Amino acid sequence: MSLLARQRQELILEQVRERGAVRVSDLAERFGVSDMTVRRDLDVLARRRLVDKVHGGATAVGPVTATSTDEPGFAVKSGRQQAEKQAIAEAAARFVEPGTAIGLSAGTTTWALARRITDVADLTVVTNSMAVAEVLHAARRPDRTVVLTGGIRTPSEALVGPVAVAALRSLNLDVVFLGVHGMSAATGFTTPNLMESETDRALVEAGQRLVVVADSTKWGTAGISTIAELAEADVLVTDDGLDADARAVLEGEVDRLVVAPARG
Rank of each mutant, 00 (worst) to 15 (best):
V96F: 03
A91Q: 10
G62H: 12
S129C: 07
T108V: 09
Q86L: 06
V125H: 15
M130N: 08
T145R: 15
I117A: 05
V165R: 12
K85G: 11
V176H: 07
V126Q: 09
A133K: 00
G62L: 12
A91C: 02
V125M: 14
R144C: 11
A66V: 03
T154C: 01
A112K: 07
L168H: 08
K77T: 06
I88M: 09
V126F: 12
A83R: 14
V125E: 15
L136W: 11
P155V: 05
D70S: 09
T59P: 05
A66H: 05
A66S: 08
V51F: 11
P155A: 02
G56R: 03
G79H: 06
L104H: 10
E97H: 12
T69R: 14
G107D: 12
A138D: 05
K53E: 00
T127P: 15
L178Q: 02
A60L: 04
T67D: 08
T145C: 10
R140F: 00
V96R: 09
R140I: 03
V54I: 06
V180E: 12
P72S: 00
A91W: 00
A60N: 00
V126T: 15
A167H: 13
I88D: 12
E71G: 07
G99I: 05
N172I: 00
T110N: 05
K77E: 15
P142G: 13
V120I: 06
A92H: 03
T127V: 09
P72A: 02
G151P: 07
G79R: 15
Q81Y: 15
A131Q: 15
G107S: 01
D70M: 01
A121L: 06
S68Q: 10
V51Q: 12
G107H: 03
P142Q: 14
Q82H: 11
A93K: 03
P63C: 00
A101S: 15
H55L: 10
A164D: 05
V61K: 01
P72W: 04
Q82S: 11
I102G: 12
A75Y: 01
N172L: 09
H181I: 00
A58F: 07
I152Y: 13
E157K: 07
I88V: 01
L104N: 06
R169S: 13
V54N: 02
K77W: 06
L168P: 02
K85F: 11
A131L: 12
V147D: 11
A87T: 11
Q81I: 00
A121M: 02
T65L: 07
G103L: 14
E71N: 13
L148E: 08
S105H: 02
L148G: 03
Q82C: 08
P98S: 14
L173P: 14
F74P: 07
V125A: 15
T67M: 03
V165Q: 09
P98T: 11
A75S: 08
V146R: 11
A91K: 01
L104Q: 00
D70A: 05
P98L: 13
L171M: 15
R49S: 06
G56P: 13
A131I: 04
D70Q: 04
T127I: 10
M130Q: 10
G179M: 04
Q82F: 10
T154E: 07
G103D: 11
R141D: 06
G56C: 09
P162W: 07
L148N: 09
V176R: 04
F95L: 00
G179W: 06
A138H: 03
Q81P: 02
A87K: 13
A139G: 07
V135I: 10
G57V: 05
T69V: 14
L104D: 13
